[in-house]
């Protein structure tokens, strides 16, 4: 019964996230471990004694419950364990290197897709049935349907190899040109999805009596659109964004690989191929935390556009 319903909501959600996180970690731990193979298996001609030493060094000779307990104990202290394949590196350090890259890339892609999706969706809704609407609609379908492993090489072919305007790939910290193509490739599918979603919800709002009434009051078309149509039309978009944003920010395997960016997406490939248990688990943990945080952010944003929800939170009525 604190006096701040918002804080109470956030605190409650964060507390509730802990068991969720625990379940995710436990399941992933089991899945990773129950898959056949071991991190040191494919290294050729590893003498049994060396292999046993390695196992002992990383604690892999212990029974599974012990390893699990140790992992959890580390996790609580913010330690994701040592990388099993990149000797002398801790997973936390790898995350610390990769996450900023992925967050930058994902954050820019998220902003771009919001910009394109929202403005395009609104434009389509206003121009319903006209040529603009039809062509943008087709473009959105294409953007959703074409996966980044098709668009990324195409973009490279046209804008890097063909015209030479932008670098083909690579990452020199702080060079914005490196990010242009990856951001576009990453943003397109989300932008297309957002556009279609926003068009549909904006059309619903446009046809509502509230909009007829707002126009009848003499408000300018622009004001009606931005103040009366957009906020309620954003409600379904916000729900969708929580998940979409986690996928963007968590690091894209394809885009990071195609453009050679040292982000989080790379982890999964390397980790999975090498059975680097701790690395894979690390990625899962980071991703799960992102999903939980972004869903919380989406819920807070939903409160921002809907006073009825807000009131329910203030009154402390449980969500139904």
């Amino acid at each position: 019964m604190t006096r701040h319903p918002w804080l109470r909501l956030v605190a409650g959600r964060l507390l509730a996230a802990i068991p969720t996180l625990w379940i995710v970690v436990t399941l992933s731990f089991l899945l990773v471990r129950l898959a056949p193979g071991s991190p040191f298996e494919d290294e050729q001609r590893l003498p049994p004694a060396v292999r046993a030493n390695l196992d002992r060094a990383y604690g892999l000779d212990q029974p599974l419950p012990v390893q699990y307990a140790r992992y959890l104990a580390g996790l609580v202290q913010g330690d994701l364990g040592p990388s099993l394949r990149q000797r002398d590196r801790r997973v936390v350090d790898l995350v610390r290197e990769g996450l900023p890259v992925s967050l930058t890339l994902g954050g820019l892609a998220l902003s771009l897709s919001l910009l394109l999706g929202v403005s395009g969706g609104l434009l389509c809704a206003v121009a319903r049935g006209r040529a603009v609407d039809r062509w943008l609609g087709r473009a959105a379908v294409l953007a959703v349907a074409l996966p980044p492993y098709v668009t990324a090489p195409l973009l490279v072919l046209v804008f890097a190899v063909g015209t030479g305007w932008l670098p083909v790939a690579g990452w020199e910290a702080g060079r914005p040109a490196d990010l242009v193509l990856p951001v576009i490739a990453l943003a397109l599918p989300t932008a297309g999805g957002l556009m279609r979603l926003l068009r549909a919800s904006a059309l619903d709002v446009l046809d509502s009596p509230a909009i007829l009434a707002a126009r009848a009051r003499g408000l300018s078309a622009r004001r009606v659109l931005l103040v009366h149509v957009l906020p309620p039309a954003l409600s379904p978009v916000i729900a969708y964004l929580g998940g979409a944003a986690a996928a963007l920010l968590g690091g894209s395997l394809v885009v990071e690989t195609v453009f050679g960016l040292p982000g989080m997406g790379r982890f999964l490939v390397e980790g999975a191929l090498n059975r680097d248990y701790t690395l894979v688990l690390g990625k899962v943990v980071v991703y799960a935390v992102l999903v939980l945080l972004l869903n919380l952010a989406a819920d807070l944003a939903a409160l921002g556009v809907d006073p009825r929800l807000r009131e329910r939170v203030y009154r402390g009525v449980p969500e139904s």
């Binding site: 509502s208 009596p209 509230a210 007829l212 009434a213 707002a214 009848a216 009051r217 103040v227 009366h228 906020p231 309620p232 556009v305 809907d306 006073p307 009825r308």
Partner: peptide, 16 residues
């Protein structure tokens, strides 16, 4: 001046 039918649908729910 226009007086619409139902305040619950004719006012924008997110505006005071």
């Amino acid at each position: 001046g226009f007086v619409p039918q139902d305040p619950q649908t004719a006012l924008s729910a997110h505006r005071t």
